[in-house]
């Protein structure tokens, strides 16, 4: 049940993420599995990505449990606004979570559109 990420696959996903950062102007992006294992990270800043992945997965899972408790399937927007940095969480596939850090002056709507593109690309990569 171990997951193996091979080199070619890793490079293609990194290319998708690199493009996403360039187009969206976001600061930092990471992909983690729902268990909190860091899969990919990209961006200039120097965050503790392992811990960020773990806490994001936990945050996402806890929010999902809250949704279940109030008879919601899931919340469609999970996002925190900060003074210097915003953070947005999106479920790409049933197992993969995408975390994006971006500056408050960027438009959330536009960012969400770009995230949707990434979701489509990564889903089709995984299908391959």
């Amino acid at each position: 049940m171990t997951s193996i990420i091979d080199e070619e696959y890793a490079e293609r996903i990194e290319e998708v993420l690199r493009e996403f950062l360039a187009e969206s102007g976001a600061t930092y992006v990471l992909l983690t599995d729902m268990g909190g294992n860091l899969l990919f990270k990209m961006g200039e800043e120097n965050f503790d990505s392992d811990t960020l992945a773990v806490l994001s997965a936990a945050n996402y899972a806890a929010t999902n449990e809250i949704a279940n408790l109030i008879n919601e399937d899931a919340f469609s927007l999970l996002f925190h606004r900060g003074n210097n940095e915003n953070i947005h969480f999106a479920k790409l596939t049933s197992d993969i979570l995408m975390i994006v850090l971006f500056k408050p002056y960027l438009s959330l709507g536009l960012l969400r559109l770009k995230i949707e593109n990434v979701q489509n690309e990564i889903t089709s990569l995984i299908r391959e």
Partner: peptide
């Protein structure tokens, strides 16, 4: 599918 340990062959990391 349950994702368990992660083996990244590009970064050469086992988690």
């Amino acid at each position: 599918m349950i994702l368990m340990a992660i083996v990244n062959l590009k970064e050469k990391v086992i988690q």
